[in-house]
């Protein structure tokens, strides 16, 4: 004699594996895409160790220029001659409506690269009306991000 109040058949809940696999694949695609983006914009450089300044990291850069230790300019993983780099900056200025002041340029220079390469780039940007830039630094171990002494 069955005394359980349940008289109807228990409903079976099957796990929706399709949705889970969808999410996992989406995550994989997202991380693979973003990691390749980081590789494209960031060359492997030994940056100068400095905590940087707070508030300088907020905006997404319009152009990331890497300068290797031998002075080669690298943009998106490609070695760029100086003349072509200047042409790229001009194109980027056009993209932001011709206002060079609003172009956000990040320069990632190897710590042992000669300053002549930065000076050349800086002078080229000044000639095109760019007045602000960001110099990338590597945060020293144990230091707070953007946590320079004030």
């Amino acid at each position: 004699m069955r005394l359980s109040p349940k008289t109807s058949k228990e409903r079976l809940v099957s796990p929706d594996l399709t949705a889970m696999v969808d999410v996992v694949f989406l995550l994989i695609i997202f991380f693979v895409t973003t990691s390749s983006f980081v590789k494209m914009t960031r060359a492997e450089l030994q940056l100068t160790e400095a905590p940087g300044e707070s508030g300088a990291d907020s905006a997404t850069p319009g152009l990331v220029i890497n300068i290797e230790s031998d002075g080669v300019y690298v943009v998106d993983g490609e070695d760029i001659p100086f003349d072509r780099l200047m042409a790229m900056i001009t194109v980027e200025i056009d993209k932001v409506g011709g206002d060079a002041q609003s172009l956000d340029v990040v320069v990632r220079a190897d710590r042992s690269a000669g300053l002549v390469h930065i000076n050349r780039l800086a002078q080229g940007m000044i000639d095109r009306g760019v007045r602000s830039w960001r110099l990338a630094t590597q945060v020293p171990p144990g230091a707070a991000l953007g946590g320079g002494r004030s």
């Binding site: 400095a50 990040v106 000044i126 007045r131 960001r134 590597q138 945060v139 991000l145």
Partner: peptide
């Protein structure tokens, strides 16, 4: 995988001086 891959990218910060000729 993601823990290992992110540990190879050291954190970066920026300095934003003005430019002047």
């Amino acid at each position: 995988y993601f823990l290992a891959s992110t540990s190879y990218a050291p954190p970066e910060s920026h300095l934003a001086p003005a430019l002047m000729a």
